[in-house]
Write a protein that binds this DNA or RNA. Structure first.
Lengths: 214, 214
DNA sequence: GTCTATACACAGATAGAC
DNA sequence: GTCTATCTGTGTATAGAC
């Protein structure tokens, strides 16, 4: 997590940069493993030993990079949040899209991530991890950014009449967030009757069109 | 969990029945505590020590009633399943109800239970508890019964045109089940802006009517 | 069946050599 | 920074007296 200035003559800037890259690459591998395990079994069931084994380093080495298990999980959450923001960037790059379609695209993306086994799942409620996350500036800032950008689209979609405007914007926002951990995806996948695209289309339909006939 | 036939003359049937009632009452208190803790913090975070403390007995005594932590959780799951079946009984007692309204009533009930802090939450996926539950006949039978009865209403509602009939029945079923652990309820509750009835109405609306305008 | 005390296992975190 | 080895706490489960 920290780097010192080169002290000896033979430590050229190039060499130092190389070491930094190795360091970042390793941390990236760690976060990837954490992300995968967090998606697979959740925070409580994930053990630091597993993470170390999957990365292929000793547990003590992990603790040189991240001071606690909570920080490991937080790093994974920050990274998925960054991925979400990058996706929002790409969406905003497309011209002439209806706000409701942007929201639909975001919901689809979160489900694709979950079905790919890359959506880290948090403990439902009060937990040591929750407390740790709320004091993590990178995470909170990312969450705020995503919420604001989605909030804008929600407001626009309610103004143009495509989105139910009797619903508070915050309820819509939370409903979209909840798709990221919707157990229906896993249930349908477990039934073995449908492919990923079919599953996502069904859940998107129930989410935006509702269970009742149109 | 087991009872022997009275062996001595002074153990009258009345006395034995009294002891049995005490036994059942204690087990009921245990299951209640497990149910509450399971709803509050989930299976992994719940400890057997907490359960014993809440019931007011020693941990070893707990293990005389239930052989493992998994069995404790299973008992709570069976009981909530029985409550659900009793609710379905009461619904079927009402005459002239539209199938879609019956389904809506079931969804409302599950949300009320969750907001009351009485809905035990299972570990998301592969877990020791899942394996234990699938071998628990009382639980599996209850789940089957509930699924079949809901399936009937779903079929009826799709036939009378009130429920979207382009959706597989199993997708509707899973969507309704998922409302029992929908995190949106907790999110909205945490915002402090809405009462329980408002929250349930909002989530019911998004579930049946969808996010899009009607 | 209830208790106290304890065995056993495992997970998070650290010490200290290299 | 990486390793091996270890400390420490905690949680499930059990032994054995009453």
């Amino acid at each position: 997590m920290t780097s010192a200035v080169p002290k000896s003559p033979d430590e050229t800037p190039l060499k130092r940069s190389f070491r930094q890259q190795m360091h970042l690459a390793r941390e990236d591998a760690i976060v990837s493993a954490v992300n995968r395990l967090l998606a697979e079994k959740g925070f409580d069931a994930m053990t630091v030993d597993e993470v170390a084994a999957e990365v292929g380093i000793a547990k003590a080495s992990l603790y040189k990079h991240f001071p606690s298990k909570e920080d490991l999980a937080a790093a994974a959450m920050v990274r998925v949040m960054d991925r979400a923001r990058a996706f929002l960037d790409s969406l905003e790059g497309r011209a002439n899209q209806q706000p409701i379609e942007q929201l639909r695209a975001v919901a689809r993306w979160t489900m694709e991530v979950q079905l790919a086994g890359e959506m880290p799942s948090l403990p439902s409620e009060n937990s040591s991890l929750r407390a740790s996350l709320t004091t993590n500036k990178a995470y909170v800032d990312g969450l705020m950014d995503v919420s604001e950008r989605l909030g804008n689209w929600i407001t626009l979609a309610q103004a143009d009449g495509s989105l139910n405007n009797t619903l508070p914007a915050i309820a819509v926002l939370y409903t979209l967030f909840a798709r990221a951990c919707d157990p229906v995806l896993g249930f349908l996948k477990g039934s073995g009757q449908y492919g990923n695209d079919e599953i996502i289309d069904m859940v998107l339909s129930t989410c935006f069109d509702g269970l009742k006939s149109r």
